[in-house]
Design a protein around this nucleic acid. Structure first.
Lengths: 227, 227
DNA sequence: GTCTATAGCGTGATAGAC
DNA sequence: GTCTATCACGCTATAGAC
């Protein structure tokens, strides 16, 4: 067993390499040998440090979830102090989206890469991976839903849950398939532009959530059309 | 080579089995042996009919894309005849979402299953799979974007593209991870309820698109907040 | 048209030298 | 702590019997 407290250079080299490969092709499709080669180490070294392949994924999760959740809660806390409901809602949405894109902790560009890992893993349905993913973010997501509910008075809790699912789906799919945006816009938009992606997701979901409010000056007629 | 025109029982049995397995675990993680077992046939039979593993995926795409696109264009055509812009927008969104869930052609429940295959494959990043996916839906998607643009006057094309990306991401993620909705709503919503999913996606994206309109009675202030 | 048998390769994980 | 060597297994794809 390696010393748990200290992160050696090899350990982080392995995690960095694995994270990059997982973010591109998922968990199952990546071979330990590839990770070893990318990290400049031998296969035996990986299993020495992390036991098995799933152990590597677990370590990747461990180093990201805490900083990312902390950053989210911090930003949500700030956002909650805004009085105007619309602006507060906007700030809350940014608090959720921003840490998924920007760097988490000391890791350069780690946020985006890790979020892409999560996006791919959520689709892959791998049993080992599923066990590791399991509710690493549920608690934070619930705080997030609570904060939204306070901005969107009179909305049913279920509706907010559905739309927060759509928010996460939007975020994931944008990270997975950014070329589609560039292509369908004939180059007028760049799907790989993270700042723009954040802006678009926040604005779009803001409109989606605000339409749930029963009070305030929303134009009537969204609910119970033919759909 | 098998007769191209006629679909034998074995062929459809193979495609059905493969489609089910792909929709659960993606392309790479499914072994030919599993498909053969589920179809009640031998491995050799699969390669006889479809050449190789990618050939099976290709055949699955072939039997779905045309019917699904046709249904979408038909529904968009109907929707375009609606005069009221809000109601037309709603109908157009339904025209896009509905065929992704409901059965396509004669295939029972085929739409949902096939859409789940597409969702997983889009995330998987497999090279062979990517080649088959490539713009099987781009033409229809462009008609869809055009139709929305007519409802949302004054909106920038790029913004519509971004939000249609979010629509697809919402749809995919809901099919991939429906349990998350049930869990986060504490059982008050059922993520696996397709009719409700359609309704929620349509309403949510309707609000998102409508907010882009510069004319009409939209409440001011969505654009250019802090974001 | 479907089967069995097998080739040829790549995989995750381990044992033991250094 | 990192290496080489190796095990046992699973994979896709093919060849050829029936």
């Amino acid at each position: 067993m390696p010393r748990a407290a200290r992160e050696t250079d090899s350990r982080t080299a392995i995690l960095d390499a694995a994270e990059e490969l997982f973010s591109e092709r998922g968990f199952g499709a990546v071979a330990l040998r590839e990770i070893a080669r990318a990290a400049g180490l031998n296969v035996g070294s990986l299993t020495y440090h992390f036991g098995d392949k799933a152990g590597i994924l677990e370590a990747i999760y461990k180093r990201h979830t805490n900083p990312m959740n902390a950053r989210r809660l911090e930003l949500i806390g700030e956002a909650k102090r805004i009085e105007d409901r619309d602006q507060r809602l906007m700030a809350i949405l940014r608090a959720y989206v921003l840490p998924a894109f920007s760097s988490s902790g000391d890791l350069v560009g780690g946020g985006t890469r890790f979020t892409r890992v999560r996006a791919i893993l959520s689709a892959e349905g791998n049993a080992q991976a599923r066990a590791i993913i399991a509710d690493a973010f549920d608690t934070t997501t619930r705080s997030f839903i609570d904060a939204i509910a306070e901005c969107v008075t009179g909305a049913a809790r279920e509706d907010i849950v559905w739309r927060s699912q759509f928010l996460l789906g939007s975020l994931y799919y944008t990270l997975i398939n950014p070329e589609r945006i560039s292509r369908l816009s004939d180059g007028r938009a760049d799907g790989g532009d993270h700042d723009e992606a954040i802006r678009q997701i926040v604005l779009s979901s803001h409109a989606s959530f605000r339409a749930l409010a029963r009070t305030s000056g929303t134009p009537a007629g969204e609910l119970e059309h033919s759909a």
